[in-house]
Simulated scan of single mutants.
Amino acid sequence: MIRESLFAASERETRLDKLGDVLRRFDELIDFAEIAHEVEQSLPQRDRSKGGRPPYPVELMVRVMIVQEYFNLSDEQMEFQLLDRLSFQRFVGLRRSSQIPDRTTIWLFRERLVKAGCYDGVLESVNRQINAAGYVARGGQMIDATLVSAPIQRMSKEENEAIEQGKTPADWAEAKRRQKDMDARWTKKHGKSHFGYKMSASVDHRYKLLRKVKVSSANEHDTKHFEDVLDGDNSCRDVYADRGYADREREHRLRSEGWRMHIQRKAKKGKPLSPCQAKRNRRIASKRARVEHPFASMAQMGGKAIRCIGLERARLRISLKAAVYNIQRLCYLKSAGVLPLKSRIAA
């Protein structure tokens, strides 16, 4: 016989805490009010002269974005889960509320962030809090890029040619234009074709945290964004990268600025690598391999595929996913007993 209790809700929450609620851990380690304050400074003030229902607090919506990216949910599924799931309601702050943000509200808030150009606001705020906790960038950095798939666009040869020239096909109505991603591009990797975007990133070697992120179309070469993601705040000047970033002129310039470049060498046609160069490549590979771990973690959270249209929206979604990865990584560092820099100095 099923036993009923007046305190069933409280008992379920207690049991949830014992099992381990990852969102409760997020709440303990990150000040979301601080993130919301910084995001709000970038958002234009809404016109309230026409009345209407008051908007949800920015902090609540930021929390919704975090949950959505961590569990890789669509707007429709996010609405359903907020109605159904206790841990979501508790984290967002709607445990005792009869109202929850619907799919349209979630989409509109994300659009506000895009229009305000607040692509990296959450990631930058999370990284500042991580630094304040003592997990500063040190031990060098690894630079690499990964492809992010987008929904494939079915277009004719003439339409593709017009888009490549930065034009909109003349016969497209406005409704059709809104459904077409004109920023995503095709590229090839290891002989396979991919459509979408590319995320270039700098990851610190010690803690494997994403420090800087740059999103571009998939067909842009990795090396184009090398200096965009180079983290000048890393206390160590060592930089590790694979052979796709080899550029003697740039390496010489960066060395003159104090950087220690560890970039693998490429063999040329008819001129294989010498044993010394091959050994150097293996040595670098053992260091830079750690950069693949954040990409793999983001892939588990659905970060290697997006369901939005346009580069600006892709920048926001990928940056949010990077912020969620860093929060998750901070939870691991804390639970594994990895001491931050300040604690090591104090010890």
Results as ranks from 00 to 15, higher is better:
residue 117 G to Q: 08
residue 125 S to G: 08
residue 126 V to K: 15
residue 127 N to K: 08
residue 128 R to Y: 00
residue 131 N to F: 13
residue 131 N to Y: 09
residue 134 G to N: 11
residue 134 G to T: 06
residue 135 Y to L: 10
residue 135 Y to D: 02
residue 137 A to S: 15
residue 138 R to E: 15
residue 139 G to W: 08
residue 139 G to N: 02
residue 141 Q to W: 06
residue 141 Q to C: 05
residue 144 D to K: 06
residue 146 T to G: 00
residue 147 L to A: 10
residue 147 L to N: 06
residue 148 V to M: 10
residue 148 V to E: 03
residue 151 P to V: 08
residue 153 Q to P: 07
residue 153 Q to L: 01
residue 153 Q to G: 10
residue 154 R to S: 15
residue 155 M to F: 09
residue 160 N to D: 14
residue 162 A to L: 09
residue 163 I to A: 05
residue 163 I to D: 11
residue 163 I to M: 14
residue 165 Q to R: 12
residue 165 Q to C: 04
residue 166 G to N: 10
residue 167 K to P: 02
residue 168 T to R: 01
residue 173 A to N: 15
residue 173 A to V: 08
residue 174 E to F: 11
residue 177 R to I: 08
residue 177 R to T: 13
residue 179 Q to G: 01
residue 180 K to W: 01
residue 182 M to K: 01
residue 186 W to L: 08
residue 188 K to D: 10
residue 188 K to C: 13
residue 189 K to H: 12
residue 191 G to R: 01
residue 191 G to E: 04
residue 191 G to W: 00
residue 192 K to H: 12
residue 198 K to I: 00
residue 198 K to H: 04
residue 199 M to L: 08
residue 200 S to M: 00
residue 200 S to H: 05
residue 201 A to N: 00
residue 201 A to H: 07
residue 204 D to P: 01
residue 210 L to T: 04
residue 210 L to M: 12
residue 214 K to Q: 02
residue 215 V to A: 03
residue 218 A to D: 09
residue 218 A to Q: 07
residue 219 N to P: 05
residue 219 N to G: 14
residue 220 E to K: 12
residue 222 D to E: 14
residue 222 D to A: 03
residue 226 F to W: 12
residue 227 E to Q: 10
residue 227 E to S: 03
residue 229 V to S: 01
residue 229 V to K: 02
residue 231 D to C: 05
residue 231 D to A: 09
residue 233 D to F: 05
residue 233 D to G: 09
residue 233 D to H: 11
residue 235 S to C: 03
residue 238 D to N: 06
residue 238 D to T: 03
residue 238 D to E: 05
residue 239 V to L: 13
residue 242 D to R: 02
residue 245 Y to L: 07
residue 246 A to D: 14
residue 246 A to V: 06
residue 247 D to W: 04
residue 249 E to Y: 03
